[in-house]
């Protein structure tokens, strides 16, 4: 119960910042996701309990947003923007370089659970494409040639 209690308390602190507690549901889900790495059913139960919501409601909210993971993801998240601006300057080639380097396709997680590779919509770095978000920090611009070094760096754990 201790861990659930800690989450519960943290969520109360967040909820107190808003005029209405329901507003805390997204930050609470983010917090739970940081705990679990993704959002398993129990995460929805815990967030629900803390905010007086049903787990179904919490999942309905979470599933609307791309950054909440309803399935387990790798320890590292590599997201390649393939929207128009990045694609015009070679995003697909960057994506393919990652696919080759990691041995997975976009949307998949490596067998060792280290990396999830996925494409994302416009990340907001279009002038410096291709934008790649590595563990939520942007690298820009990334060229296919940069890819092995990025993967190597993550493998070596220098985060």
């Amino acid at each position: 119960m201790a861990q659930a209690d800690a989450l519960y308390d943290e969520i109360q602190t967040i909820a107190a910042r808003y005029p209405q507690r329901l507003s805390a549901v997204m930050p609470a889900l983010r917090l739970a996701q940081e705990r679990y790495g993704w959002l398993p059913p129990d995460a929805f139960r815990e967030v629900g309990e803390a905010l007086d919501l049903t787990p179904a409601y919490c999942k309905a909210v979470a599933s609307f947003y791309d950054m909440f993971h309803l399935e387990p993801v790798g320890r590292h998240m590599i997201e390649v923007c393939t929207n128009v601006s990045c694609a015009l300057v070679g995003a697909q080639q960057v994506l393919e370089a990652f696919e080759g380097e990691l041995g997975v396709e976009a949307g998949e997680t490596t067998e060792d659970g280290e990396f999830t590779l996925r494409t994302i919509e416009c990340a907001g770095g279009c002038g410096w494409g291709t934008v790649v978000s590595v563990d939520h920090r942007y690298r820009e611009p990334v060229k296919p040639d940069d890819v092995p070094a990025i993967v190597e760096e993550l493998r070596n754990g220098s985060e």
């Binding site: 910042r17 808003y18 209405q20 507690r21 329901l22 507003s23 805390a24 549901v25 997204m26 930050p27 889900l29 983010r30 309905a60 909210v61 979470a62 609307f64 947003y65 791309d66 950054m67 909440f68 994302i120 919509e121 416009c122």
Partner: peptide, 27 residues
């Protein structure tokens, strides 16, 4: 001033969707 972080949904840039999202609902 409260900084509220979105979670990946373009539609939340539309003002009323943003408000829904800010209130803790689907955007």
């Amino acid at each position: 001033v409260v900084v509220h972080r979105g979670a990946g949904a373009y539609i939340c840039g539309e003002e009323t969707a943003l408000l829904e999202s800010l209130e803790g609902k689907r955007g």
